[in-house]
Design a protein around this nucleic acid. Structure first.
Lengths: 166, 166
DNA sequence: GCTGAAATCGCCTAACG
DNA sequence: CGTTAGGCGATTTCAGC
């Protein structure tokens, strides 16, 4: 299984940095039970190996003036690989689209979008997304309220799993 | 509008920390064009005002052994506020559920879930989610591949908007 | 009120055992 | 992986705009 190339200290490092990405290295070292220099070496290794894809401040979208969050389900006319890739590239170019995932089932993609207000989103929806080449159908759902928004993965589930298979 | 209580330097700070949450304060100060002490004070103020909700390392779920990502659309039997809140609380308690958003339209909630493998997710789906009180329907879609996953908000959209209204 | 400058303190990060 | 040590950043203090 992937993840077993990491020892318990590496996993603890990842869990701690997922919970607080701005923690100092000495604090991190203290928490994982080693001294600072090897801790920093591990962090660099984890970054270079791709386990850590970056560090980001989580900003409050609503407080910043992005009042609208929308999930959009998109169906395409052609599911040929070239057409799928072309649509994905468009999503990467649209700043209002924050996430784009290809799905199984009847709908082809789910998009998470954010916008300052409804009219901005509706302009994007009608003039860009629905109007884009190869787009067959778009169904949107407004987020009424957010109940949970945890970044990353549940490390405790991983630990339980590793303990069971040991 | 919210966001206009922030001056251009504050917005630049937020944008920079969203892009790189581990940037040192002196580097941040250099980028936004002020010296380090006032820059640090602004960051603390933004944190306390709730504009910054935290800092998180973005870990690679698949490389860590979480091979399965699923979006689940959940319909409830009762949409009374007490029942909505009860379901939201359940979602907060389930570690496999990373996000839970209440939606308008026919479906009540969308959940983003992550799991080490399909059987773990299916156990959760049948034994926990579908079996939970007040849950009327659950439709799940597996993520085949991810095309875009940008955290946060598009600051350039915000700046364009502010420039237009000035 | 704000910023910037200086000084102290603590952390980062090499090199070596 | 730990220890040491030198340089740099973080953070407080204080003065100036």
């Amino acid at each position: 299984m992937a993840g077993s190339r990491l020892d318990p200290i590496d996993r603890k490092i990842l869990a701690e940095l997922q919970a607080d990405g701005r923690m100092t290295n000495v604090e991190l070292a203290k928490r994982v039970g080693i001294s600072a220099p090897p801790c920093l070496r591990r962090v660099r290794t984890l970054e270079e190996a791709g386990y850590i894809r970056g560090y980001h401040a989580k900003v409050d979208a609503r407080e910043l003036g992005f009042e609208v969050q929308v999930f959009a389900m998109v169906g395409l006319q052609s599911q040929a690989e070239a057409d799928l890739s072309a649509f994905e590239q468009r999503c990467r170019d649209w700043p209002l689209v924050r996430e784009c995932h290809m799905l199984n089932g009847e709908v082809d993609f789910i998009l998470k979008c954010v916008a300052p207000d409804l009219s901005t989103f509706q302009s994007f929806l009608t003039e860009q997304l629905t109007a884009a080449e190869n787009v067959a159908s778009v169904k949107t759902s407004l987020v009424i309220r957010g109940a949970k928004d945890e970044p990353g993965v549940p490390f405790d589930v991983l630990e339980q799993r590793l303990a069971r298979s040991a």
